[in-house]
Simulated scan of single mutants.
Amino acid sequence: MDVRPSGIHHVTAIASDPQANADFYRNALGMRLVKRTVNFDAPQTYHLYYGDRAGNPGTVMTFFPWPDAPRGRRGAGQATVTSFAVPEGSLGWWARHLSALGVEADRPAERIEEDVLTLRDPDGLVIELVASAGTHDTDPWDGGAVPVEHAVRGIRSVTLTEHDADRTAEMLGGRLGFEPVAEDGPRHRFRTGAGTEGVGTLVDVVADPRAERGLVAAGTVHHVAYRAPDGPTQEAWRGALAADGVDVTEVRDRSYFTSVYFHEPGGVLLEIATDGPGFDYDEPLLRLGRALRLPPWLEPRREEIERNLPELAVPEEGA
């Protein structure tokens, strides 16, 4: 079986207050709101997408903000950390920027020869900024609160916390084509495919047999999506996973990509998402994220959906 995603497509998490969420990712992290839509399976809540200028695969963090959501619990069977790549030498600027906004961050630390700054979003989701000199084939957003020379380049990696890391490592290496590249105590690092570089190509698996089981709610990651270049490749990967006995969903239309979902052995929900058609599928690139977009099958319910969604004020930014 040759399932070799070229990297992370996006990471999706749960939030509570949509306004606090948008303010943080736009102003504190300087990301562009590239799509304002709803959860297609539960349209009473928003689905907010943040990324680089065009929301290129590998740069996108998305949220389902449920205003009354309880706080979740980070633990085993979850993606417990999302790491963003920022330019090498920029962590000092980021520390000052976050401090000025009242965002607490740990002192920079070194891990596997990388400098890392750890912080939390308004719901407690753990975010890392990793100073990276690697390849960043993205288009950093220069119309927001962070100067482009310091801007987030994309998702560097995710960290999976597992009771039994061996089973997860077996799926990553045996079924998904990842390759082990480094170890640091209980942390095992894998890279997607042979020789791939750039954003979203790393995943860390941390073994913690004593960790409490994670609870997915506000402040936790819901799923991690990996990239397929197109629909036929995605369908081939889906068939290969099913042939290996993995319980994988049918292909689901998400308007801006199509998706299949499955769980890795430790319980983390994974997705394989196509690169296209992309976020300018239903609105011009220069106006991404400025209006509520709905898929065709929900458009007849627009008035009802808009009436039930909380207000979300997002000032227009440069483009």
Rank of each mutant, 00 (worst) to 15 (best):
Thr258Ala: 02
His223Met: 08
Arg189Ser: 07
Ala228Asn: 02
Arg189Phe: 00
Val248Pro: 06
Ala169His: 04
Pro209His: 07
Val268Tyr: 02
Thr233Leu: 14
Glu250Pro: 00
Gly200Tyr: 05
Thr168Leu: 13
His263Ala: 07
Val260Asn: 03
Tyr261His: 14
Leu176Tyr: 10
Asp230Ala: 15
Pro180Cys: 03
Thr168Ala: 14
Asp244Thr: 05
Gly198Val: 14
Val224Ile: 11
Arg191Asn: 07
Ala169Leu: 15
Val158Asn: 06
Tyr226Met: 14
Ala225Asn: 11
Ala165Asp: 05
Ser255Ile: 14
Leu215Pro: 00
Thr159Val: 15
His222Asn: 14
Ala225Met: 10
Ser259Asn: 06
Asp244Leu: 13
Phe190Asp: 00
Val199Asp: 13
Asp184Met: 05
Gly193Asp: 00
His222Trp: 05
Arg175Thr: 05
Asp247Glu: 13
Arg156Asp: 13
Ala225Asp: 09
His263Lys: 11
Pro229Asn: 14
Ala217Ser: 15
Gly219Tyr: 08
Thr201Arg: 10
Leu176Ser: 03
Ala242Pro: 14
Glu264Tyr: 08
Gly267Asn: 07
Thr161Ser: 14
Arg189Asp: 02
Tyr261Glu: 13
Arg213Pro: 01
Val158Arg: 02
Gly245Ile: 05
Glu162Phe: 03
Gly174Phe: 11
Thr168Trp: 01
Arg254Gln: 08
His263Gly: 01
Val203Cys: 01
Val206Leu: 15
Thr233Pro: 02
Asp244His: 13
Thr220Lys: 08
Met171Ile: 09
Gly173Leu: 00
Arg167Met: 12
Arg175Leu: 15
Gly174Tyr: 06
Glu235Leu: 13
Glu170Tyr: 07
Ala182Met: 00
Gly193Phe: 12
Thr201Trp: 01
Ala182Lys: 03
Asp230Ile: 13
Arg238Val: 07
Val205Tyr: 03
Thr168Cys: 09
Asp230Lys: 04
Arg191Leu: 04
Val206Lys: 04
Gly239Pro: 10
Arg156Ser: 05
Thr249Gln: 04
Arg252Pro: 00
His263Ile: 00
Val158Trp: 07
Asp164Tyr: 09
Val260Gly: 01
Ala218Asn: 02
Ala194Cys: 01
Val199Leu: 12
Gly266Tyr: 07
Glu162Ser: 15
Arg252His: 09
Val203Arg: 00
Arg156Lys: 12
